[in-house]
Design a protein around this nucleic acid. Structure first.
Lengths: 216, 216
DNA sequence: TAGATTGTTAATCGATTAACAATC
DNA sequence: TAGATTGTTAATCGATTAACAATC
């Protein structure tokens, strides 16, 4: 119901509010939260409207209450069951992240096709054979799958996930995946992020730096 | 000069065009490229206009030529010099990715503050002490830095990078960083991606699935 | 020629920002 | 009260899409 961009920012707000809370801040103004995310106060207020909380013109918003309400919007009350496919460096990074994150993130399986990795325990999760993927999905139920395989394996895995009924996918493989309209797909494109910044930096320095030639 | 969104898509096009080229495709229509990225043909044509290439109404675009021109827009002719800070799982994933990627990506340093990692070779790069960060930047010159440290170290590292003259930063740490306006910052937010998909999937299934209670 | 595709402009869409009355 | 902040609507901005003459 809340627009995607708002959902993204709510995830950010939540993390920052948790920090603020542990630092003893009980109340926060929209412009303070805005500064933390390098956004505008108006946008913060708009986002919080979406959550349904209401602030106070003298004290701003109550951090505690804000967190409770954002949780309600973002999290499924019974948690999110997750599978991860591809236990390489990136897959391990995700497992490690999810391990310590919060209790409503539930990893129900980590899969790889490398015999050497199967049955190994990585950050507390036992690696399974990718041949068992459908069986685990069928028995545990899965809300979101993380694809951290090499590019050439990603679409095939994606198809299997969709066929098995998974309706949310986070794709770390550097290829665009194709999914039916009823599946939510989020691309995390490391390659593009790097190339994009490189390009933008270069564009910004054109003219003041190396003038296209003229050195040695 | 090209809008950021266009730059992002150009990165994607380039990767897909390379694949197409190795598969022997010499020409491609805007609607074909659009399908590969799940975009629209009009957008592809618009993006390619920005690059300055021109197509042919019977044969579409020449893949070969397209790649050459996109390279010119995206890449600095002398390459992009990169440092990476934080050789954890995520840092290793990035090193591994950059190792095999292409010749214009030049990693000039990988840093960590863990004594156990320093001097170790990771995916072909020797890990350095983070105390040497400024020295390496000063001697090698650095275009883009990748921050893959834990969240609590990220802002301090970021400040040091900016002070040392780095003008492009890719941030993998799950905190928003603050940089001056002349620094390009790209956030790759793994935590948000995961939480966002979880939320969207849940929103989509509300009503048809667990009706907020009603099971034991 | 007829049909498909390109290059480009105008129309649409969505998201962000500005503004301001209402509140404390 | 005076001053700051909220909640919300209207104005702005940018990006995407539709449309279509020109081209091959």
């Amino acid at each position: 119901m809340a627009p995607e961009k708002t959902v993204e920012r709510l995830c950010l707000y939540r993390r920052l509010l948790k920090t603020a809370l542990t630092e003893g801040e009980t109340n926060i103004f929209s412009h303070e939260l805005a500064e933390l995310v390098s956004g505008s106060a108006a946008q913060v207020r708009r986002d919080l409207m979406e959550v349904g909380v209401t602030g106070h013109s003298k004290r701003g918003y109550e951090v505690d209450h804000l967190l409770t309400e954002i949780d309600k919007v973002l999290d499924a009350p019974h948690g999110t069951r997750i599978v991860l496919i591809g236990v390489g460096d990136l897959g391990r990074a995700m497992l490690r992240f999810m391990k310590g994150y919060h209790e409503r993130i539930k990893v129900v399986g980590a899969f790889d096709n490398d015999e050497a990795k199967i049955e190994r325990v990585v950050h507390g999760f036992r690696c399974k054979s990718v041949t068992d993927l459908e069986a685990v999905i069928a028995s545990s139920g899965v809300d979101v799958a993380i694809i951290s395989t090499p590019a050439d394996a990603a679409q095939a895995i994606c198809d299997r996930l969709v066929a098995a009924g998974v309706r949310g996918i986070v794709n770390f493989a550097p290829v665009p995946l194709h999914v039916p309209g009823n599946v939510k797909l989020e691309r995390v494109d490391i390659a593009t992020a790097l190339e994009k910044v490189a390009c933008l930096v270069r564009q910004a320095t054109v003219g003041c730096n190396v003038p296209e030639e003229a050195n040695d």
